[in-house]
């Protein structure tokens, strides 16, 4: 826990940024039923399990069209 106390100045913004990315991706997944490929469950798993990389992959490859 020492590491946490010593480096919270780094870890806090880092965690906020990671979560912002994850939550934006999750909101988008729940609002849109269609994806370029894959299913809703698959994308949720990818976004939650792979920090940072997951949401990027979703927005670049998985995101369906808005209209």
């Amino acid at each position: 826990m020492d590491v946490l106390r010593e480096y919270w100045l780094f870890l806090l913004p880092l965690i906020i940024a990671q979560f912002a990315l994850m939550i934006t991706a999750l909101v988008h997944i729940f609002k849109h039923p269609t994806y370029r490929f894959g299913s809703r469950a698959m994308w949720i798993a990818i976004v939650v399990l792979f920090q940072m990389i997951g949401p990027i992959v979703y927005f670049v490859f998985g995101r369906g069209e808005d209209d």
Partner: peptide
């Protein structure tokens, strides 16, 4: 299209 969000956050 979230491009801005992705790049800035990364």
């Amino acid at each position: 299209t979230y491009k801005l969000l992705i790049l800035l956050t990364v």
